[in-house]
């Protein structure tokens, strides 16, 4: 165990970043994030299905009690869904867009939230400890030192992998441009990329800025989802790295030849801080899932015909002549 701790003190990132799992399919080694994705999806679907069954209106024989949601988890999910739908998405996107995109946005939110919360549970570390306690200290220490524990089947934070967050952002990217082509059409989308209908059909003297706007808009096409991916990745990696560093202090003391009592004291203090950081991580898990979902909703609504917020549109025609919904909206500042 001491050897394991010493090895852990080498590189805290080894506990945070994605690595190979002990599972493989036809010789292809799966990563922990891939396993976490599948397990997270299964858990997310199962929990939400159970919640849906409890939120659903019961038989009329139950009287008024048939409208009451049973179970704490179902009630929490119901409150989250209601809050996101009525307080966030409908005001930002309007009734029509919110109704159309609610399934995707809520699914993204709960899927990312599940993956984030999974990252708070040290499944991989527990497996490493169990592996070490079962008498394979040397192999475990070697695995930990090389950040490739062959006996870890599942664990880690899937959203702390850029591959995963880029995959999720790719779905947002497709949703944003699907909405653009559906609402604005190919011509309208191209006009949007060139600065809008007013600019394209405006004075010839202003056409000089169209290439600049086109480059910026094309860049924005990719920068927006990339920002989603990197924001989620950075927050997950940063929090977990901080946790790993805190827990590695004791191992560092031991490695430097310090007394055991000093390592124990430092580990105790670091553990207290780690508990506090865990609460912050819990908040960040919810916050980042929300930000990913909410910014996707904002980007989608930027590409839609305006069907709400006419007042804002009346004051802001500078971006194009198609009445995009986002003209009057300020993009929320990326938090955290």
């Amino acid at each position: 165990m001491t050897t394991l701790l010493l090895a852990a003190g080498d590189n805290p990132l080894g506990h945070v970043l994605d690595r190979d799992s002990a599972l493989s399919i036809e010789g292809t080694r799966l990563t922990l994030s891939m396993i976490s994705l599948v397990v997270g999806a299964l858990v997310c679907i199962t929990v939400l299905m159970m919640a849906a069954r409890r939120i659903k209106t019961g038989p009329s024989s139950e009287g008024n009690a048939r409208f009451v949601t049973k179970g704490r988890i179902a009630q929490v999910i119901e409150v989250i869904v209601l809050g996101l739908r009525d307080q966030m998405l409908v005001p930002v996107m309007g009734e029509r867009l919110a109704k159309a995109w609610l399934p995707l946005l809520l699914s993204l939110f709960f899927f990312i939230l599940t993956l984030n919360l999974f990252g708070l549970i040290p499944f991989a570390d527990v497996q490493e400890m169990l592996h070490a306690m079962m008498g394979q200290h040397e192999q475990a220490a070697h695995d930990a030192a090389h950040a490739a524990p062959a006996q870890v089947f599942f664990g880690g934070t899937a959203t702390a992998s850029l591959s995963v967050t880029l995959g999720l952002a790719a779905i947002s990217f497709c949703a944003i441009w699907w909405q653009s082509f559906r609402d604005l059409g190919v011509k309208g989308t191209l006009e949007h990329l060139c600065g809008g209908h007013d600019l394209v059909h405006g004075p010839i003297g202003l056409w000089a800025v169209i290439p600049i706007i086109f480059v910026v808009e094309i860049g924005g096409m990719f920068i927006k989802p990339a920002a989603l991916a990197i924001r989620l990745l950075a927050n997950m990696v940063a929090g977990h790295t901080l946790m790993a560093v805190l827990f590695s202090f004791g191992a560092m003391v031991l490695k430097a030849g310090g007394p055991t009592w000093a390592a124990g004291s430092i580990t105790l203090v670091a553990g207290i801080f780690a508990v506090l950081i865990t609460f912050l991580e819990l908040f960040v898990a919810f916050l980042q899932a929300f930000i990913f979902m909410f910014l996707t909703a904002v980007f989608i609504s930027l590409m839609a015909h305006e069907d709400h917020g006419h007042e804002e549109h009346a004051h802001d025609h500078g971006h194009g002549g198609h009445g995009h919904v986002g003209h009057g909206h300020a993009e929320p500042a990326p938090a955290h």
Binding site: V16, L104, T165, G167, L168, A170, V237
Partner: peptide, 23 residues
């Protein structure tokens, strides 16, 4: 694996497929 900015195709494709199936 040691670089947090590295992108692997297989996990990326898995993320897309699993997320789409979930949705």
């Amino acid at each position: 694996a040691s670089n947090p900015m590295s992108v692997q195709i297989l996990p990326l494709a898995t993320a897309v497929v699993v997320a789409l199936v979930t949705v």
